[in-house]
Design a protein around this nucleic acid. Sequence first.
DNA 1: TCCATGATTCAATAATCCTTGAAATATTGA
DNA 2: TCAATATTTCAAGGATTATTGAATCATGGA
Lengths: 121, 121
Amino acid sequence: MEERQALLSFAALSQETRLGIVRTLVVAGPDGMAAGAIAEAMAVSPSNVSFHLKELERAGLIAQRRESRSIVYSANYDALSGLVKFLMEDCCAGHARVRALLEQDDNCCSPSSATAEGGNV
Amino acid sequence: MEERQALLSFAALSQETRLGIVRTLVVAGPDGMAAGAIAEAMAVSPSNVSFHLKELERAGLIAQRRESRSIVYSANYDALSGLVKFLMEDCCAGHARVRALLEQDDNCCSPSSATAEGGNV
DNA sequence: TCCATGATTCAATAATCCTTGAAATATTGA
DNA sequence: TCAATATTTCAAGGATTATTGAATCATGGA
């Protein structure tokens, strides 16, 4: 993921309503949700949800498709995992310190490389 | 990490200069860098860097300490890994789809749980 | 104490973002 | 074609954020 894309994504996720939309769409799965349903779930006006959806799409975090009268939005899982990766690798420089802290209670990775590079905090 | 903290962190990282500062401080390590050195590295004015440093501190992403005449800033590795974790677990609902995509080229985790929960994309 | 250094705070301006409600667009069914 | 539904676009406002330069504060050395 390029920096420009990451900046847009961070900006998109820094707004309460938009973060809520992303969460809702991630849970909704690839089938997605119609704009109206999202507006209802978030308790915001149609025009307001439309504004935020456009912002999220501009950042590439969601995708839209028309389905009859509705416009259905769904999470872009590639973009989301790309952002996680950017945060870990580019932004945090794949830093041993961050990795180690992540592995502490994540216990998803082999613990061997955890404190190898620099445990001097 | 709480949502409020995550929102502040995303907002902090959504600005080019601030993202650059975080990157620089992560690379600099726990010893950190003086405000003036950061300003020089980022090529921005002292007052401007001060503004952005305060913003990053408000988000909890960096810490400051006085060292003689200088004020030295350093990355908060706990906060950074907390944000990565928030993005993966809270925001992306620890979703199988995101995990799977991360593991594809990360090959850091055991591949067993990758497509277990929902491989219907 | 006085001066130089390193940094922050302040005020003003410009730019961006969020919200609202009204108007416009696209789709479907009668 | 007409009306209803689903959504977007637009314009206006208020709020927040970014930048700049001048003024202020804190520290250390002469």
